[in-house]
């Protein structure tokens, strides 16, 4: 199997896109506002540190991972043209997501701890899901940091593998069918959301099994919703990842060139 060269090819290509995503984000979110303030003659109102704090580095990375995981057909075309099997493509692509996910997670953590936190300590608690809910899991800040890192990595992989499964599923259909699915799924999502909102408004949600499940998933030990542990969510993410991985493997093995 040609996993080495394939991984190398995909990694180089996708890291280049990640670099571009960061450069464009920096240009649009930091440089462009600076230039606009400069041109308007109100440069004193521009705060570089605020711009750094407000730049959603984690969000950018999540969006990047979701997009590259959704779009697998272009790579499939090039690889099958070059004698690479679907199985090798799948394994190599997974390795690349694991590596890039790790790199992105390191960047996110470094950015949060070394740039955002020192610049704006007050809003630190709302920087991520982990810091919002689970920052007091351990009394030792180092252990908390390690747990936060693992938690962040699991979340990134959950988003990526879910997108990988959805993208590879969609790639099995014609463009026409893909459009129909892409339209139908958000409609179904909105209907579900309306239903859930109605439950909440009617105060029924608190008593439903869904509410109990949500509390269990988020790791709340008591009804007062004050102390939470991340372990349930982490195990859930891991299980979810395995399911998405299996589905992706099945969908990858069925990929074909369209209009061949």
């Amino acid at each position: 199997m040609k996993i080495g060269p394939t991984t190398n090819y995909l990694l180089q290509k996708q890291l280049k896109i990640l670099g571009l995503a960061y450069i464009y984000s920096f240009a649009f979110l930091i440089v462009l506002p600076f230039l606009l303030y400069l041109l308007s003659g109100d440069i004193s109102a521009y705060s570089f540190s605020n711009a750094l704090v407000d730049t959603p580095i984690s969000g950018i990375f999540y969006i990047y991972m979701i997009v590259i995981s959704l779009l697998s057909y272009e790579n499939f075309k090039f690889l099958i043209q070059n004698g690479i099997s679907r199985k090798t493509f799948f394994i190599s692509q997974l390795k690349v997501y694991l590596i890039i996910g790790l790199i992105g997670n390191i960047i996110n953590q470094i950015y949060n701890y070394l740039i955002v936190y020192p610049l704006n300590m007050d809003t630190f608690k709302s920087l991520s899901l982990f810091q919002s809910f689970y920052e007091n899991t351990f009394s030792n800040p180092f252990l908390n940091g390690v747990l936060g890192f693992v938690f962040g990595y699991l979340m990134i992989m959950s988003y990526s593998l879910t997108s990988m499964a959805i993208g590879s599923f969609l790639s099995l259909f014609s463009r026409k069918m893909q459009r129909a699915i892409i339209i139908m799924i958000p409609i179904a999502g909105v209907i579900t959301l309306v239903f859930l909102v109605k439950l909440v408004i009617d105060h029924q949600f608190i008593d439903t099994w869904m509410a109990d499940f949500a509390k269990w998933l988020l790791g709340y030990a008591n009804d007062d919703l004050t102390t939470a542990k991340p372990y349930h969510l982490m195990v859930w993410c891991f299980g979810w990842d395995l399911i998405m991985l299996y589905l992706s493997k099945v969908f990858y093995s069925k990929k074909q060139i369209k209009k061949a």
Binding site: M1, I84, S85
Partner: peptide
């Protein structure tokens, strides 16, 4: 099918 060693012997 899904065999790199053999697919590697062909170019279309």
């Amino acid at each position: 099918n899904d065999n790199d060693r053999k697919l590697d012997l062909m170019y279309l």
